[in-house]
């Protein structure tokens, strides 16, 4: 599903070139649960952005679902993100003016797939995560854990193959964080491919595979 070959990424800070990723080779297949671990500054978020088609590598070749995404334009990339990837972020990023179900429905607005009965589906996802009584609450009225569960429902509404989560527990206490990780485990058992990016060593054991990034390169890749 994901095939990264010698991915390099560098930024220019002034006229000094700053190399964030120094040649990453990584293959991830359907149904995996990968925890991408690294300290801040290791390049893990940059890697996730590239994997999530939000950013482009400077060098190397990235094949996603057998498509070389290197030369794709904005519109096609946007459509691929919408079709294949569900994002979950540390700060939840729910839109404050929409209630829970409307937040869940955001990907549907941009979807070309034509999902049937999206409202029922969104409601079902919220119910699945124990939020049936929160359907019409605004984000400000929800707890952190509840907000993150709404965000996960949003990531799932379009039936993507891949869930990409960037520090999904970073803004939550450890108990709630654990609940969220169990949720990912459950989704993985249902067949979703999941990548969780984190610096928190406690989360390492949740995945089936642990990839450690240090200083822009993969230092460890073990299947647990």
């Amino acid at each position: 599903m994901i095939d990264l070959k010698d991915i390099k990424k560098s930024y220019f800070v002034g006229d000094r070139e700053l190399q964030i990723l120094k040649g990453i080779d990584l293959k991830i297949s359907r149904g995996e649960f990968v925890v991408l671990m690294g300290v801040s500054g290791s390049g893990k978020t940059t890697l996730m952005n590239i994997v999530g088609l939000l950013d482009k590598q400077t060098e190397g070749r990235y094949t996603f679902e057998n498509i070389d995404v290197g030369g794709l334009n904005d519109e096609t990339l946007a459509d691929m993100r919408n079709r294949y990837i569900g994002f979950v972020f540390q700060q939840f990023f729910l839109l404050p003016y929409l209630d829970a179900i409307e937040n869940v429905l955001i990907p549907v607005v941009y979807s070309k797939k034509g999902i049937k009965h999206p409202r029922e589906k969104a409601k079902g996802l919220l119910a699945k995560f124990g939020l049936e009584h929160r359907v019409h609450n605004k984000p400000a009225q929800l707890s952190g854990g509840e907000q993150q569960r709404v965000a996960i429902a949003r990531a799932l509404v379009n039936d993507p193959e891949l869930i990409l989560a960037d520090e999904p527990t970073g803004a939550l206490d450890s108990k709630t964080g654990g609940e969220i990780m169990h949720l990912f485990k459950m989704l993985n058992n249902e067949g979703k491919t999941i990548i969780v990016v984190t610096h928190d060593p406690k989360l390492a054991t949740f995945g089936k595979r642990l990839v450690r990034i240090e200083d822009g390169a993969i230092s460890e890749d073990i299947t647990t």
Binding site: D74, E75, F87, I106, P107, V109, N158
Partner: peptide, 16 residues
């Protein structure tokens, strides 16, 4: 900005 970012991540095009 975050609003825009999240929409872009979830498939909004520039045009959108």
């Amino acid at each position: 900005k975050k609003d825009i970012g999240i929409r872009r991540a979830y498939g909004a095009t520039r045009k959108g």
